[in-house]
C-alpha cells in the first residue's frame, strides 16, 4: 500500500473538486432521496385515505389553515441569498488562500506529460476513449449526451412528480438518471482522476504509479474470436463488416427488448407507456440503447478483452 501515492493523488490541487464530488454527490443523492421517500409515505397515506386526500395540504411541511401561503421575498428569500453568497465567498476565500492553482512548466510540445489528462470534468469522456474510438468517445457520445439531456422533458410523459421529490412515482426516470449521472458520468470521472496513471493504465488506490509498467494484454476484435473466427471469409471485408453490422443489429434488438421490458414492467409503467407517442418511444429507445452501449462495451473489454465489435474500412465500434 503506497499511502504517499494515494495522498498525492487525493491532494493534487486540481483533484480537490473530485475529492469534493466524492462527498457532495452521495450527500445530495441521499438528501434528495430522503425527501422523496418522505413524500412517498405521504402519497401512500393519501391514496389509502381519499377523505384525507381531499382536505390535506399535500406537503410534508407543516401547514395550518389560516397560515399565509406566500411570504415576502424581502426579507425571507433575499436574506437566504445574501447568506449563501457570504458562505460561498468564505469557502472560496479559504480555498484560494490555502490551495494554490496548479502551474506546471511552460508548454513544451516536445515533452509529453504522462499521464496527460483532460480537465477533470472531461475525464469521463477521456475514460470512454479506452472503450471507444475517438470519433465515438470524443464527438458522437458527447453530442448524444447533450441532445439526450435536452430530449428528456419531451419524452418523459409521466405527469406525476412535477415539482416535488418522489421516487415511487418516477422509478424508471430516476433510476435511469442516477445510472447515467452517477454510475456513468461521475464514477468515470473518479476513475479517470484517481485510478488512471501513466500510460492511462489502471492503478488501484494505493498502488504506486509505475512509469515502466507494461501490461501484455491482447485485445482482439470480436470476429477474430472463436467461434466467429471460423466463419469463412471473416478475415476480409466485406464479410467482416457485415458480420459486425449483424452483431450490432442483434445488440440493438436485444437492448431494445430489455429496455421495452423495463418501461412496461409495472402496471403504472404501462400506463405511462400508453401515453407515449411513437416518436417519443423511438427517440427514447435510441438514446437508451446508445447509453447502454457504454457499459456493454466496458464489460466486453474488461471481461473478454474484446476491442471492436464492428470493423469496417471507415470506422470501428
Amino acid at each position: 500500500m503506497d499511502w504517499h501515492q494515494l495522498w498525492t493523488i487525493l491532494t493534487t490541487p486540481d483533484n480537490i473538486p473530485i475529492t469534493a464530488l466524492l462527498f457532495l454527490v452521495p450527500f445530495y443523492t441521499w438528501y434528495g432521496l430522503r425527501q422523496a421517500l418522505a413524500n412517498d409515505r405521504l402519497i401512500a397515506q393519501l391514496e389509502a385515505n381519499p377523505e384525507m386526500a381531499k382536505t390535506h395540504h399535500r406537503k410534508v411541511y407543516p401547514y395550518k389553515p389560516g397560515w399565509p401561503r406566500e411570504v415576502h421575498v424581502w426579507p425571507y428569500l433575499l436574506r437566504i441569498e445574501l447568506l449563501a453568497a457570504i458562505v460561498v465567498t468564505v469557502i472560496l476565500m479559504v480555498w484560494s488562500i490555502t490551495l494554490d492553482a496548479p502551474l506546471e512548466e511552460p508548454a513544451n510540445p516536445n515533452l509529453t506529460m504522462n499521464p496527460s489528462k483532460a480537465p477533470w470534468y472531461f475525464l469521463g469522456l477521456q475514460e470512454m476513449l479506452v472503450y471507444f474510438d475517438p470519433w465515438m468517445a470524443g464527438v458522437v457520445m458527447p453530442t448524444l449526451i447533450i441532445l439526450g439531456l435536452m430530449a428528456i422533458p419531451y419524452i418523459d410523459e409521466n405527469p406525476l412528480g412535477n415539482g416535488y421529490y418522489t421516487f415511487r412515482q418516477r422509478k424508471f426516470a430516476i433510476l435511469t438518471f442516477i445510472f447515467g449521472f452517477i454510475v456513468l458520468w461521475v464514477s468515470m470521472i473518479v476513475i479517470g482522476t484517481m485510478i488512471r496513471g501513466p500510460g492511462w493504465m489502471w492503478f488501484w488506490p494505493g498502488q504506486t504509479w509505475d512509469h515502466n509498467k507494461l501490461i501484455f494484454e491482447v485485445n482482439r476484435d470480436l470476429p477474430d474470436i472463436a467461434p466467429f473466427s471460423y466463419i469463412p471469409g471473416i478475415k476480409t471485408q466485406p464479410v467482416r463488416g457485415l458480420f459486425g453490422a449483424a452483431v450490432m443489429g442483434i445488440y440493438v434488438v436485444l437492448a431494445g427488448w430489455l429496455i421495452h421490458k423495463l418501461i412496461t414492467l409495472t402496471p403504472f409503467n404501462r400506463k405511462i407507456y400508453a401515453r407515449m407517442s411513437l416518436l417519443q418511444y423511438v427517440v427514447m429507445q435510441f438514446f437508451l440503447i446508445t447509453m447502454l452501449l457504454l457499459p456493454v462495451k466496458m464489460l466486453l473489454r474488461l471481461l473478454f478483452r474484446i476491442k471492436y465489435i464492428w470493423v469496417t474500412p471507415w470506422f470501428n465500434i
Binding site: 454527490v25 416535488y164 449521472f181
Partner: peptide
C-alpha cells in the same frame, strides 16, 4: 460542480415537466 448538482436537483424534483 454546482451546475451539475443544480441539474440533478431539477431532475429529482421533476421540474423539467410542463
Amino acid at each position: 460542480i454546482t451546475v451539475e448538482l443544480h441539474m440533478f436537483r431539477v431532475f429529482l424534483t421533476g421540474s423539467y415537466k410542463p
